[in-house]
Design a binder for these strands. Structure first.
Length: 629
RNA sequence: GGGGUGGUAGUUAAGUCGGUUAUAACGCCGGCCUGUCACGCCGGAGGUCGCGGGUUCGAGCCCCGUCCGCCCCGCCA
């Protein structure tokens, strides 16, 4: 660390000035502007070893405590906070100048590092020292703030204000921390993948409009009247063409645009870590991703992750957790009862294709009062929780019998069999849903996640706080009223063993697709792609695409695949979501510097906005009159 | 497209059954204070109760409409 500010090149005549310092006499370059010479340290750097040094710090007035004579300033930048003490006996001019200082003024201070003696603040990394002010410059003043920046308490400002004055929100240390983390993650991504032989390549944001899938943002083309570019919803096709082009291994930290409704964890533009490799198998795609994640968690969070992340098929995830992105930080897995209850004669059970339940052990079940069970029943009946017809519950008594609305309908033998299957103990509470596949699993999943939160199951399970999971072997298609649609996208390869099923039973075809799940959040997804034109043709046929549609949307890709495409596959990771989870944030907005509101607007800039008639005319766009006029 | 919730001082919130001058904390302004660190003490200013309409003797509060934020469903190949 330099003991004094680096001399500025603009000063031809270094002048010696003697500060009337109490502990030391120091030599500095006096300057018309402290800015010219630059700061000697950031606001988080100084320690006890620096006592005696003459320093120049720049930053914002985080807090000011004016004792009339002594004034204390906490000076803040993104590196930390340093206390500045202003003593009228030592620096009368600076003391007089400091009278004007208020919160968030941007200032320069020059002074001497002194020990705080008995007044150490153990809460601050710089708490053993303070800077005794000799010279003060105010770069800029600040109006009364629209919200309290210094307090750093999220509840201190509503979302509206935070977004309107985003540049102030971003000054808060908690958000600064998030963006430091995000930057490190991006840097590690580039380092790790480049070291593994990946090329960082760019793909266009302005691409061909292809209806189907996510809605596109459209950009009118002035040079091509009446025609539009679409903003890329993903680099999917281009990265596959990179493989045809022989790039072998590609990655990109890439913005994607989707004009869909927003959520807490969904923004209209978001950032992907996009990866594609030639001669891929799922394992060859997953391995470098795991290496990247492991390195990021270790370097940024200091967390050791397992050498290999667990794998689970989609079918198993659905059967055990009712979700394709299960939270495996705790147990409470689904237990299948169908075979036991098949002969029960109880219509609620015999009439449903699926009968499954959860067993809340006696150590967790105290909180499940009758009132709470009624609330859970309401929950599973909600449409967004699956819309189950009801929830069968039972409290297991000391003798194994049930306290339950169902008790009188079921034989003692059946109760005993269910207890045994579910591992019920005295005091356990059993929650059972009987319905079709979709409702049973969705309702039990909603129930499981609700119990996770209300019974604090994650903390009480005592597992590692970072539970990664690869979910594999997704169905290739989903059946809708209008026929089959791709679960992932139409270039996803079926498993080789399932190829015959493309003709006979497409619903049974499983894909070479994989999602990376962290603590119940999908943070990435990918697949092995189809590189055989005959397989691609069959998939398009199942999807019901006409030859004309195929040629229009993907003609250039299929044409490219006529010229020796290598087998290939890849993945895309959600950089925003990963940053959010690493930062412990609960909203994507806390890791995106300038996010949009739920209606897709920017409260700070006022976008989107209208355009003037001249420009619209150039683009051959005419506005339709609003409805009702 | 649908469901929920919120909008009151610069900020965050309280505001009872519809009833006197709309309340508190922080911030702001002024004064005092030489070891604070969310400094303290004294005093003060500050309001289009989101906007528009209605009911009423009287509306922050009730009704209708509307705008905006947030959460969720649908949607997100």
């Amino acid at each position: 660390m330099p003991a004094s500010p680096a001399p500025g090149t603009s000063f031809t005549r270094p002048v010696v000035a003697v500060f009337p310092a109490r502990r030391t006499t120091v030599t500095v370059t006096p300057m018309s502007s402290l800015l010219e010479n630059g700061r000697s340290h950031d606001c988080g750097a100084l320690r006890h070893a620096d006592v005696g040094a003459t320093v120049v710090l720049f930053g914002w007035v985080h807090r000011r405590r004016d004792h009339g004579a002594l004034i204390f300033i906490n000076l803040r930048d993104r590196f930390g906070i340093t206390q500045v003490v202003i003593d009228p006996d030592l620096a009368p001019a600076a003391h007089a100048a400091a009278a004007v200082l208020r919160g968030e003024f941007c200032i320069a201070v020059a002074g001497v590092v002194v020990s705080r003696g008995d007044n150490i603040n153990a809460q601050m990394p710089t708490g053993e020292i303070e800077v005794s002010l000799r010279e003060l410059e105010v770069f800029s003043s600040a109006d009364v703030l629209p919200f309290n920046v210094a307090d750093d308490a999220e509840l201190d400002a509503t979302e509206t204000h935070r977004l309107k004055y985003r540049y102030l929100d971003l000054r808060r240390p908690s958000l600064q921390k998030n963006f430091v983390l995000r930057s490190r993650l991006a840097t590690l991504t580039r380092l790790t993948l480049a070291e593994a032989g990946f090329l960082e390549l760019e793909t266009p944001y302005m691409v061909k409009y292809t209806p189907g899938g996510a809605r596109n943002f459209l950009v009118p083309s002035r040079l091509n009247p009446g025609q539009f570019y679409a903003l890329a919803e993903s680099p999917q096709i281009f990265k596959q063409l990179f493989m045809v082009a022989g790039m072998d291994k590609y990655f990109q930290i890439c913005r994607c645009f989707r004009d869909e409704d927003l959520r807490n964890d969904r923004q209209p533009e978001f950032t992907q870590i996009d990866v594609e490799i030639s001669y891929a198998t799922p394992e060859r795609v997953q391995a470098p991703i795991e290496a990247l994640i492991r390195r990021a968690w270790k370097d940024i969070l200091g967390a050791e992750l397992p050498q290999q992340f667990p794998r689970m098929t989609w079918a198993e995830a659905m059967a055990r957790y009712g979700s394709d992105k299960p939270d495996t930080r705790f147990g409470l897995e689904f237990i299948d009862l169908k075979d036991i209850v098949a002969e029960s004669g109880f219509r609620m059970f015999t009439g449903a294709p699926f009968v499954k339940g959860l067993c809340v052990g006696p150590e967790h079940s105290e909180a499940l009062t009758r009132g709470r069970l009624d609330k859970l029943t309401e929950l599973v009946k909600k449409r967004e929780s699956g819309g189950a017809k009801g929830l069968a519950w039972a409290r297991v008594q000391a003798d194994g019998s049930w306290q339950s609305p169902l008790a009188k309908n079921l034989s003692a033998e059946l109760v005993a069999a269910i207890n045994a299957r579910m591992g019920a103990l005295p005091g356990s509470v059993l929650l059972i849903i009987a319905d079709d596949f979709h409702v049973t699993h969705q309702a039990l999943n909603a129930l499981r996640l609700e119990l996770r939160d209300s019974l604090d199951l994650v903390a009480r399970a005592g597992r590692s706080p970072w539970q990664f999971l690869w979910v594999t072997d997704f169905p290739l298609f989903e059946r809708t009223d209008k026929g089959y649609v791709s679960s992932h996208h139409p270039f996803t390869s079926p498993r080789a063993v399932d190829l015959p099923l493309l003709d006979s039973d497409p619903a049974q075809v499983l894909a070479q697709a994989y999602d990376l799940v962290l603590n119940g959040n999908e943070i990435g997804g990918g697949s092995i792609r189809i590189h055989r034109s005959d397989v691609q043709a069959k998939v398009f046929a199942v999807l019901g695409l006409s030859e004309a549609q195929i040629q229009h949307k993907f003609g250039f890709l299929l044409e490219a695949f006529r010229y020796g495409p290598p087998p290939h596959g890849g993945i895309a990771l959600g950089l925003d979501r990963i940053s959010m989870l690493m930062a412990g944030a609960t909203s994507l907005r806390d890791v995106i510097a300038f996010p949009k509101t739920q209606k897709g607007t920017d409260l700070m800039t006022g976008c989107p906005s209208g355009a003037d008639d001249e420009q619209l005319a150039e683009l051959f766009i005419r506005q339709a009159p609003p409805e009702g006029t």
